[in-house]
Design a protein around this nucleic acid. Structure first.
Length: 120
DNA sequence: GTTGTGACATTAT
DNA sequence: CATAATGCCACAA
């Protein structure tokens, strides 16, 4: 229908957020990925920034493993020493992920991730 | 409608 | 390694 331009309160932005949430929610335990990888996997290339926003506005009820999402090269996106930073590091270490100087041991490259993710 | 900001990425210097 | 510039897009003022 022509008048069906927009569903009640339903915007493309919301769909993007949901897509991102779904990808993050699917992150296996002990696995760390980057914002860019999440965005790409959610069908939103070059929208890493949006991923950050999505996580920020994500309802707590979703219990998203936000701590498994880090910046490029495995760098934690939060300012070193901040409360969020410490919490993320603590959660990652709790899952067996080594965090050294604000960085997590990433599998060399996203290619490996993409390969594993691409298969499934 | 314009402006500034941001849980980023990439490339260049 | 750090800094700057650019892209990208949602959101608040």
């Amino acid at each position: 229908m022509a008048e069906a331009k927009q569903r009640a309160g339903r915007t493309p932005a919301d769909a993007a957020l949901e897509a991102i949430w779904r990808v993050v929610a699917a992150l296996p335990r002990g696995r760390v990925t980057t914002y860019g990888a999440v965005a790409a996997r959610a069908g939103l290339p070059r929208r890493a920034r949006l991923v950050g926003h999505a996580l920020k506005v994500a309802p707590r009820a979703l219990a998203l493993p936000w701590h498994r999402v880090v910046g490029a090269g495995g760098r934690i996106a939060f300012p070193a020493g901040s409360a969020h930073f410490r919490e993320q590091r603590r959660r990652l270490q709790a899952e067996g992920v080594e965090v050294l100087r604000g960085r997590v041991s990433l599998p060399r490259a996203d290619d490996l991730d993409a390969l594993l993710w691409g298969g499934r």
